[in-house]
Amino acid sequence: MQAAGTGGLVRRTAWRLRLVFLFAMLAALPYLLSYSQQEIAVLLVINVLLVCSYRLLTLTGEWSLGHVVIMGVGAYASALLAKQFGVPVPLSMLLGGCMAAATAALLSFPLFRMKGFYFLIGSFAAGEIIRLIWKRFTDPFGGPKGLKRIDPFPDIEASFLSVDFYEPVNYYFLALAVVSVSLFVLYRIERSRIGLTFHAIHWQDRLAESVGVDTFRYRTLAFVIASFFAGIAGGLYAHYVGAVNPTRFSVDQMVYVLVWAIVGGTATFHGPILGVVVLTVINEIVLRALGLDTARPLIYGAILILSVLYLPNGLESLGPRLQARWRRWRGGPAAAGREPA
């Protein structure tokens, strides 16, 4: 008992140290990057939130093709609130998240009558309808050209401190703060009984139902939470880039989210983060350096196919697998000798 207690303490301290180290790295990161790389880092941080919120939805076993559109709902809502009603930007982002969540709550009534393929296609249809509405109704959505000159995040102008969020470095820290808090919340949800229930619904919805889990309510809950954070990501995006349009939230973009999640692996919390970080680095640094920009979708497509075929549990499974192989290789000859052929 005693030993376990100190062991737990050691582990917790090690974990905290690692977290401190991680944040120190993240804080130092923008100063090591060029201006254009800083801009990419901002988008990467936003995409981390997008893909992590997506994973929460997949915990219940349903894969949506509408998640990027939901992000767009947050972006459009926040932009319109700021532009047309003069709502201060931090508040408009929050309301954008709420709008995305409300949209999800509404959509859950038709969509959660479906499962599997049908949910996938239903969510695709619902997302396309929303996108077409943005396209069709120029007032207030701006039509195919979308919204431009969206109010930026207000600068902080205090006597001792002045922060201009037009600077990517500063927006990076803002996004990092918002995303860290959001990820913490997502993590807490997953580790709580709510997360256990999500997993239970994924693996055996009938058994869960038979001991009193209202699967419809919990699926909706996952969808609403995931959508809220996707909406927050959308708000962060809109007020950074300053423009949104229907094409930015099309199914092509959704494909990238799928790729990140699948290549990273959705079994663990960090899997999708790994996916989006690794692929963004490959994409922005390696492909750009090689001048293979136009080949980007092709390479993403090939990576997607290869990872579905050969790495069905994602990058996150690579570490443990390599470790096992390494151990086997080191103890190789002896172990092989003992084993009957």
Binding site: W63, G116, F117, L120, V255, L258, V259, I262, T294, A295, R296, P297, L298, Y300, G301, A302, I303, L304, I305, V308, L309, P312
Partner: peptide, 22 residues
């Protein structure tokens, strides 16, 4: 793995598109 098949076909779609652009 029907969902895997669907996702792989999304990957294939990207490849065909890019080849057509090329």
């Amino acid at each position: 793995n029907p969902l895997g098949g669907l996702i792989a076909s999304i990957g294939f779609l990207l490849i065909l598109q890019t080849l057509a652009v090329f």
